[in-house]
Nucleic acid binder design. Sequence first.
DNA 1: AAAAAAT
Length: 607
Amino acid sequence: MSELEDSMNNLNVNEGGRQSKSNYVPPHRRNGQGSSAFANNGSRGGGFGGRGRDNFSAGRGGGRGNGMNFRGGRGRGPTRGQGRWVQGKHVPAPKDEELELKMFGTPEDPSFQSSGLNFDNYDDIPVEATGEDVPEPITQFTSPPLDELLLENIKLSRFTKPTPVQKYSVPIVSNHRDLMACAQTGSGKTGGFLFPVLSECFQTGPAPIEVESETVFRKHRAYPTILVMAPTRELVSQIYDEAKKFAYRSWMRPCVVYGGANIRDQMEDLILGCDLLVATPGRLSDLLERGKISLAKIKYLILDEADRMLDMGFEPQIRHIVQGCDMPSVNERHTLMFSATFPRDIQLLAKDFLKDYIFLSVGRVGSTSENITQRVLSVEDDEKKSVLLDILSSTDDVKEGLTLIFVETKRMADTLSHFLVTRNFPATSIHGDRTQQEREHALHLFKSGAAPILVATAVAARGLDIPNVTHVVNYDLPADIDDYVHRIGRTGRAGNVGIATAFVNRGNKNLIKGLIELLTEANQEVPQFLSALSREATVGRGGSRGGRGGRNAYGKDFRRSSNYPPQPSSQAYGRTNGGSNYFGGSNFYGSAPSSNTTHQSSGSDWW
DNA sequence: AAAAAAT
């Protein structure tokens, strides 16, 4: 109890924290290597974290200082659960039960139970794969095509059968094809790229090393085999956590780099061995410029949430990383791109980064919405607090699962979480004015169930995969119906059921029409007051969405369109604001829009 | 109004 209070004090008090910066442990290192539990046991290998590599084995051990004072007493030793590649063979590390408990969780963990996913719901997700010679999807996790060790790790992670993305991505990668996938978080896409790519690498081993440069090799520079780029720090950290699980006992050592955390620590970690690198573009560029990373050995390049990366202005950096450094060319590597939407700039990126790829379009988990019960309440602004209290105390949510509350402003996030704490609801908050560590801490409290109520601004609306969210409350509704869809999508994930509650009043009238359509589409009850409000708000903006194709909204393989290939900017498609236009995003339009149609209202997203 | 990313 007092521990929670203490953490919450640290969060809510705005003193910049008594927690001094030097004590900050980044999320991926908590309970992990670097802590004293992982102190050098001195038993294995040389200085390189015990990662033996046949052409290394001779004369290694001494080079980096033997064991004890390794890395200036930081207590870092060989990475636990680290296997090796010796003489062309994969030598997995022995099982480490203590580590397994830490990594894969214990039955007491709230997330452990909930991983009893309702996988049957996945089977309803529509998938479309197009391109030349699309390989047959797999139906089970088996070896072949997947590596035995990977299968064990998948089992430890309690994934029992492949999600639709994974069914396709596994054979696509093992057939050495590139992939462009329209899929969202929650569809199992992290496994979708990690499984096949790790599996391949487990079997083929590290890239051959030029013997002449071997002394220099990896001394100050990391040569990853797999690079995963994603837009946000939290996402990158999440992917890294997954990667650690699946790479357990293998020869591959995952690393993560992102801004806001100590770069020296990251560089030291890289030197210990980096075979799979998960990175945000900014920090990666930085490390590339410093010469700490070489991309020359990349076999697999993965871009996750590519559309968000472009929205956030990362395109120049991404292009520089992929085309302007020492990354092997399109033909010498395999590339997988994931994106929720498929606007023109993503198509152009795909054209440059991918070759002869398979286009995979995956519908949204729960797009049929049976697993999300949407509840809309008429609540005036000044009643919101008390109605919220009623809801929180009348449901079992707080005990059973996690409640995510969305508000409009950062200030409201603070106010409301403080208010809830004073009413004995264990709440915390996340928004852009909090420091990175506060945000990560809040997220940790939330995920662990220590603070099962999280008050959030739009920062948490997309991308974060928080299992076990049973209830999403739209305390303040977003201005855009697409944002609403993303928000309620934080619950009912991975086939589980969830409730979404929205507070609506006249202030939300521009959203009401879209909301009604959505509820109707999803077979949800449309309360009378909502229809009444809708009739009231007759002015302006008739019909919110031109063409929401609803549950059949696939991304489209534009290569079939007569408009292919797309031209850079302007030209045929008419400029749309922000470049968020995409053609074929919805079957509603049939084929790609004709040249002078300007679909301002066609929505910037599909789901 | 809010958000994201290298310092």
